[in-house]
Design a protein around this nucleic acid. Structure first.
Lengths: 134, 134
DNA sequence: ATGAATGCAAAAACTTTGCATGACG
DNA sequence: CGTCATGCAAAGTTTTTGCATTCAT
């Protein structure tokens, strides 16, 4: 089971809830799930995991670098399995669809701008809100 | 009183809470205030405005384009008086300091990327998390 | 066995809403 | 005056926490 190794690798004890949540994130067709989404999906799959545990585990996964948390507009956070490759997001304001993208020019400009101000880039967050062209 | 005209211009009735909140945002030295920040600042200034009203008014101001709401990381929204000029933010992860910037190259690239995917840009959100260079 | 993880329920943090009262035009 | 805005308190959301129990090693 690949999931077990993933967990051991980051120093988390291999427990049923953690494995199930990791599998859920790995096999879902949604790229981004909220804690509630994960919880409901697990319930529907007949897995009995508490919502509090889902929150706790997702937060641990984030600290461990296994998932990325996004605060898109609208109250709740969503999580995405990190694939090591950095990317940014485009969110359609009409359909809610999420498209991932990566642009070297923007990435480079960001580092330049930060350096011009005497800082170094630790992380960044770019979300483009878009609409299908009429 | 400049504030009164601002309010009339966007079709909002000129009421004491609205004027006070607008003045608060205009005169504060913090660049970004949460609803709670505004509320507390008003209380300290001896102005008696309800927290619910602060939330309602800030939301109206946002709809009217008077302020911009940001969902930086960490639960609560912050508001900033809009100066018409668009800009993005750099947040120092150590001091919490917020620096505003604007880069034409990034802005342009964003529009290009979105267009390449068959969309048009409605809005965007870019935050660079930075640290003072060692 | 022993310390960590879980589940539940309670609480915390943030924001919205219902309704009676009061203020703006 | 009629209507819209306000204040309060209550309810909604999302997320966190305390604590007894269960599980992993």
């Amino acid at each position: 089971m690949v999931e077990n190794n993933e967990l051991r690798k980051v120093g988390l004890k291999v427990t049923l809830p953690r494995v199930k949540i990791l599998q859920m994130l790995d096999t879902t067709d949604q790229r981004h799930m909220s804690a509630e989404d994960v919880y409901k999906a697990l319930m529907e799959a007949g897995e009995d995991v508490g919502l509090a545990t889902v929150y706790r585990v997702l937060t641990q996964f984030e600290s461990a670098g296994l998932v990325t948390r996004h605060n898109f507009d609208g109250g709740h956070a969503v999580f995405e399995l990190s694939d090591g490759e950095h990317h940014d997001h485009m969110v359609c304001v009409e359909t809610g669809e999420v498209i991932e993208f990566m642009d070297h020019e923007i990435e480079k400009r960001q580092r330049e701008i930060v350096a011009e101000h005497g800082y170094e880039l630790v992380d960044h967050n770019l979300v483009l809100y878009v609409r299908k062209k009429a």
